[in-house]
């Protein structure tokens, strides 16, 4: 094989010569997601866009904890419905993902992640699931166990699991190793503990966690295939004390590298370049809103169009309005902490 055999898409100049930079060829899926194939999703808040579009496509989107009948979209979002294939909320890190799968298959509760405030009990691993908390600790435990059963069933019954990697920075319980979705003190001051500590995962850790996750889940569903993406959304804040820009670029580089490594090492794994389409497209221009963080709806639509077209899935017929969907990102709570 030499360069002469390579397709046009492999050459910068030949991509540049096309107004769409040949995005139609940017992704050659390693496996097909056929109509009717059960697909589940998880990840950082950008993953909600993928889940929403899959739900509206002819793929069989797995929803183990569906929105109760009659509940509006806004209320559903407040209760963590309709975001992913179960009500786990945003799963920002690979450590969180591994923990979720491990807990699901072991029915592990992690009581150290519960906290009580004003007589109500809250789930520190799913802080935005129950706005008013649970009336008793028993109810919280029952809710967590039921949720974990649904997550287990999701892994067992899916043909494809799509995960969007979001962060390397994580907060964990120094005594038990339990990983939180975000800084517990940002969730609620009542949840902060001296044992909570910050950790910024290196690429080897992220790869190892993904390896263990894949091995664990395939132990229960050997045919499950994995599709990874990296969120293009910058960090709200870095706990490293450094500048948020290199922290963002470094984290994304780690996550992108880890996804590529896992894709190369495991059969049935693929990577979809949403991150590249948003952040590195030469013709995309300004992909972000005025806050320089939120991806513009039209860019999200471009990403989704590339995804669905490459998979041969039929997208939803109606173009959503600009305010039709607002991803739920509890990460923005970090901003409130600093103020």
């Amino acid at each position: 094989m030499s360069y002469t055999d390579l397709p046009d898409r492999s050459f910068w100049k030949r991509c540049r010569s096309r107004p769409d930079f040949r995005f139609g060829e940017i992704w050659q899926p390693a496996f097909a997601i056929d109509p009717g194939m059960p697909v589940s999703t998880a990840g950082s808040c950008f993953a909600q866009h993928i889940g929403r579009e899959l739900r509206a496509s002819d793929a069989a989107f797995v929803d183990m904890e569906p929105t109760p009948p009659g509940m509006s979209g806004a209320t559903a979002a407040r209760f963590g419905f309709g975001l992913y294939s179960a009500r786990y909320g945003n799963v920002y890190t690979t450590a969180q993902l591994l923990q979720l799968a491990g807990d699901a298959f072991a029915a592990r509760l992690r009581p150290e992640t519960f906290f009580e405030k004003d007589g109500a009990w809250f789930d520190g691993l799913r802080p935005r699931i129950e706005p008013g908390g649970y009336a008793t600790r028993d109810l919280l435990e029952a809710a967590r166990l039921s949720h974990l059963r649904k997550v287990r069933q999701m892994f067992e019954n899916s043909a494809v699991f799509i995960f969007t990697l979001g962060l390397t920075e994580r907060w964990e319980d120094g005594e038990t190793g339990s990983v939180f979705p975000l800084f517990p003190g940002a969730v609620d001051g009542a949840f902060a503990r001296p044992a909570h500590r910050f950790h910024n995962a290196r690429v080897t850790e992220v790869i190892a966690e993904l390896d263990r996750f894949i091995t664990l889940v395939r132990g229960h569903n050997p045919e499950l295939r994995f599709l990874f993406t990296v969120s293009p959304v910058p960090l709200v804040a870095t706990a490293t004390g450094g500048h948020v820009l290199p922290a963002t670029v470094g984290a994304k580089a780690v996550l992108r590298t880890a996804a590529g490594e896992v894709q190369a090492c495991h059969k049935g794994c693929d990577y979809f370049p949403a991150y590249e389409i948003v952040t590195a497209s030469p013709f995309c221009g300004d992909a972000f809103e005025a806050d320089r963080r939120s991806v513009k709806p039209e860019v999200v639509r471009r990403v989704i169009r590339v995804f669905l077209t490459a998979q041969g899935l039929t997208p939803c017929c109606a173009e959503p309005g600009p305010d039709a969907f607002d991803a739920v990102c509890e990460e923005i709570l970090l901003d409130a902490v600093r103020r």
Binding site: P68, F79, A142
Partner: peptide, 30 residues
């Protein structure tokens, strides 16, 4: 479609669980 946590009844079909405030919110919207 849902089992309400705390309501004294079994959940033999393992329906997804919701709290009573969640039930009330869904009913209110409906």
């Amino acid at each position: 479609c849902c089992h309400v946590l705390g309501w004294p009844c079994p959940n033999p079909s393992d329906l997804p669980v919701i709290t009573e405030p969640c039930l009330r919110a869904a009913l209110s919207d409906a």
